[in-house]
Design a protein around this nucleic acid. Sequence first.
RNA 1: GCGGGUAUGGCGGAAUUGGCAGACGCGCUAGACUUAGGAUCUAGUGUCUUGUACGUGGGGGUUCAAGUCCCUCUACCCGCACCA
Length: 802
Amino acid sequence: MQDYLHLEIEKKWQDIWDEKETFKAYNDYTKPKYYPLVEFPYPSGQGLHVGHPRPYTALDIVARKRRMEGYNVLYPMGWDAFGLPTENYAIKNKIHPAVVTEQNIKRFKGQLKSLGLSFDWSREINSTDPKYYKWTQWIFLKLFEKGLAYKKEMDINWCTSCKVGLANEEVVGGVCERCGGAVIKKAKSQWMLKITEYAERLINDLDDLDYIERVKTQQKNWIGRSEGMEVDFRTTSGDNLRVYTTRPDTIYGATYMVLSPEHPMLEERANLIENLDALQAYRDEARRKSDFERTELNKEKTGVEIKGIRAVNPANDEEIPIWISDYVLMSYGTGAIMAVPAHDSRDWEFAKKFELPIIEVVQGGDVQEAVYTDTDKGIMVNSDILNGLNVQEAIEKISDYLTDKGLGERKVNYKLRDWVFSRQRYWGEPIPLVNCPTCGWVALPESELPLTLPEVESYEPTDNGESPLAAMDEWIETTCPKCGGPAHRETDTMPQWAGSSWYFLRYCDPDNDDIFASMEALNYWMPVDWYNGGMEHTTLHLLYSRFWHKFLFDIGVVNTKEPYMKRTSHGMIMGENNEKMSKSRGNVVNPDDIIQEFGADTLRLYEMFIGDFEKSVPWSDNSVKGCRRFLDRIWTLQENVTDDAGYSKTLEVAMHKAIKKVSEDYENLKFNTAIATLMALLNDFKKQTAITEGEMKTFLILLNPVAPHITEELWQVLGYDNMVADQTWPAYDEAKVIDDVIEMAVQVNGKVRSTITLAIDATQVMAHELAFVDEKVLQFTEGKRVVKEIYIPGKIYNIVVK
RNA sequence: GCGGGUAUGGCGGAAUUGGCAGACGCGCUAGACUUAGGAUCUAGUGUCUUGUACGUGGGGGUUCAAGUCCCUCUACCCGCACCA
């Protein structure tokens, strides 16, 4: 017997798979297809992280199993290569980001190949390749054409000392990550995409999808649909202040109003306001905080009352004060609220701090002492026409009442905001628009796509907040495609989300120069059957790509209204100390080292065995060794295989059970228990003097998706000249999976006292007879009265005594 | 703070969804083989005050029966819109 030389064996089979194009997805549109997808990685300078192989191996298992089940499988891979780290590296080292990207991709690809993943590399894509981003730009132009892209003044993070715009991630503790300088918000005209127009569909269409529940919930909560009312409050300045509320029933408890510090009323009625300076100072302060900081509850509430203007509660005509406070956001609702301190915890804290009146309108608590929010079963009080109603009835009645009086209207609101699509950066897709003094914003004609990134001297953003492209005069100066007059190019680029919002479509037809993918290819391959990715992409990436896909469906260029049929999520791999792996913590494990020492099969097996696929899990060097030991023990099986093609009598049930369990577990993300089953089966094998060829073959096929190299090698050792990858997935016989005799636990008063052996279909009478001669049972029942017997066939027998 | 999730031996985890808690693996203990062992093989391994005992983050409840269902508390993890 040869030694198990993992490096040699793994290289050998990887070369064979490449040469034979074993995993190529062929364009035979008559066969049943299967399209599993993993998120394409950002090729960072650090190389592959041990976290990457976890999802890749998981869907590799599914892909390999599907091929053996007769499907034409498309399991593709590519690079999501635009992004901030590459750009920052380029700035620091004065090297073109494209060069950095190329190096990183090369390294990543080599590492992925050494894992033996069954990707179809002939369809590799790269989001920074002009041939790819031509179509990203094309899709943007379609959005623009349909009125879904618009310009709006939005705040960016601005470092006052570097004089550059910063990503949120570059703002640490309110200061610039690079220089420690103060960061303020600076208004900048930005391209926005109207994702809010799709909010309703993005919620409703989730119903038909096979997404794991927590992903659906997160998507729904992120979109944040709420039904409520917009209500107008008159003011002493003669204006109407419109608020949004989901609880119009509590309007009689509204004892003050709060406006967002950015609310336009401050400008519009500046002449009537007596304390403008204080308000302005507060506004400046709020400007330095993010929405996230502003809505933090545990911090002390702050605010300033507007002196000189008061509001009138439309329900009871009482005059109430108006405050500004940063816990009200301009970006949600109308930027103004009616505050009901008795029944909203934020309002309650604010009222307590500033000694504003608290009026109970739903019975059930002591609102002077604590906020009362559990109002579901409460009855309305102090509310005139609503008194005595429950909350639901009150909402209906007051909504009708205010609507009839012309004081408000029912309104559905979403937390979801439109997508800020501009970045003042170099390393992104140029936005293919031209600003013409006479025609306004004009799209480039399709024939001019891709609009490629020009060479620039510096990748640093300019000190007036524009992208590095703004310094390229000869690139900016152009002519208007519409009128032919002089015009300027847009210098902002797209966010990294752009390229990843449609990449799964390109895999279907990656070399097409006429369209991003032909309808023929899309009709066959789409939708993605199973998409696995990190929980951290559950809100943004998933939502953005669903939005783009729905848009493409609306303009008739894709065939399905949803891109992904099924979405699952994997947990993170932590360092051995159960902290996030990072250089600074010194707990990083390099996959290359593991492959070198133990082999790719061991790494794959380990990452699948390590724990619940959906949960995060710490790395363990010892467990890696245990997985290698399992493969070593399999390797030695080759010495004890007989010529018998079937299963032996002693192992028959175990074989059928294992096929069933492994087949099901691979489908349900339960890779750890699938492997445990195979380990148990190997233990059974080891108890025999020899196993049959049939048993060995089945075992190798079942293990192949997890450990493809060693299983192919052992297959060859058995004397076959084809591959495991060419085999048919084994079937099991349901009749042979069930034991006909079982051990049943016998409980007395709910505690297990003994077990009895009986037929699977035995009756209670038979169980009774066996149990009441059992010494251990009698010990607990003797001299006592049997009150009740619970017999669940095949499960348990419980005797209740007194 | 808001939204989502998690908690089981020394460690990673399993438990047919209300029916024998701890499968499988690691670690540990003992033994075998060995010049040697961080190799391999065999056996054992939840805890303790060793019994009508206790035990699935803490407290309470429902049930013949609870890791699983209900109430409540705590701790940790992910996301929060310019990281990807």
